[in-house]
Simulated assay, not measured.
Amino acid sequence: MRVLFTSPAGAGHFTPLTPFVDACTARGDEVLAVVPPSLEQLLTERGIPFRTGAEPDRAATAAIRDRLPRASREEAAVLVNRELFGRLCTAAMLPAVEEACRDWRPDLVLHDPCEYASAVVAERLGIRHAQVATSPARIEAYSLDLAAPVLADYEPELAERLKATPYLTRFPASLDPSPYSATLRFRETARPGAAPGAQPAWWGEDGSPLVYVTFGTVSGGMPAGVAACRTAVEALSALPVRVLLSGGRATDLSELGPLPGNVHVEEWVSAPGVLAAASATVCHGGSGTTYGALAAGVPLVVVPLFADQPANARLVESAGAGLAVFPTGGPADAMGLPGPADVPRLRAAVEAVLADPSYREAAGRIAAEMRTAPTVHETLAALAAAP
């Protein structure tokens, strides 16, 4: 079987696809990815065959990003989902995806839900396709509804057809009810040779609770990400904990200034290895980090910055698996920027999550539910066997 994988820019969009790439490779299937130039390094490092698509004009995307900090959350959602993903990214990726589908002739296309060019081409050519979720299903469906008017310019009723195609998600039903009629839930297993190893003794013999802090790969290069890192360091420096901050390759770590003795910063760490030893995770609520922490049974303190993160923060809090600390400015209007006023609030939230065992117990129940889902290999086999 030939399987084509497609994704927009951002490691957080492509990463949920990688377990299926690995499963296809293990089955002996042929795989190919079509991705924007910014993902070339990631795929090269993973040894995944790829072709390079295009990214939208920089001036057009900059105009959108410049508007985001001043936009309401509703306006920001339209800008990102309709204008960026629906209009600009689809137009940019369409030629390369169409060329790959016509000359490589995949049997199945697996794509990020926000990568619409592959759905357009697959529908036109009669190729089976499925979405591999990045975010909770309600958020994905909302994003699709926002993009629907521009997608209809390519294929009438494409949004409705996407809601009826297989929708593969890592999130469990109790946390993430799905409006997609063909929802298939799966669980990730450790990649061969990637078992978590012992972490370096960055703190010597200190056995204090470990708090893992990460604000993702996308936000690291943005003012909100740097502000969040700085706020977290200040909030946690006074607590009797060890802090491991993964800054991300786009973050200028020099902007954090001198670091307290209980804080260690790395550009990148293997999250599964850290989560195996962590007592709590402080993050922005990106779906990858949220899923990883919950799958490991680790409670969270979520400081949402943009996109699906506020919704993820509320899901975690409503499930009792952690607390949300919305940056000053609140979640309803313009996106808040973490700052000094949030330091005591974040510190108190981490203290509460560490002191109250109910948060870890709730995260553990979610992790147990996740472990009952079919494996990626089983899910892929079901897709391959479908007519």
Rank of each mutant, 00 (worst) to 15 (best):
P8K: 07
A9N: 04
G10W: 06
F14A: 05
T18A: 13
C24F: 00
E30A: 10
A33R: 03
P36T: 15
P49D: 04
P49M: 07
G53H: 04
G53F: 02
S72I: 05
A76D: 04
L88W: 08
A91F: 02
L94F: 11
A96V: 04
E99A: 15
E99P: 06
A100L: 12
L108K: 05
L110D: 04
C114G: 03
Y116Q: 04
A119V: 01
L125G: 04
V132Y: 04
T134Q: 09
T134L: 11
P136R: 13
R138G: 04
R138A: 06
D145P: 02
D145C: 11
V150R: 04
L151N: 09
L151V: 10
D153C: 14
R161Y: 00
K163D: 02
P166S: 03
L168H: 05
T169S: 15
S178F: 02
E188V: 11
R191I: 00
P192E: 08
A194S: 14
P196Y: 00
W202S: 01
G207S: 13
V213K: 13
T217S: 15
V218H: 15
S219V: 09
G221E: 06
G225C: 09
E234H: 12
A238M: 10
V241H: 09
L245H: 10
S246G: 13
S246F: 00
G248R: 09
T251M: 14
T251Q: 11
L256T: 13
E266P: 09
P272D: 05
A278N: 05
A280I: 01
C283G: 06
G286D: 05
D308R: 11
A313H: 06
V316K: 07
A319G: 12
A319V: 09
A321R: 10
T328L: 09
A341E: 15
R345A: 07
R347S: 08
E351N: 02
E361K: 09
A362K: 07
G364P: 01
G364Q: 03
E369L: 03
R371S: 08
T372N: 03
V376N: 01
T379H: 02
A382D: 07
L383P: 11
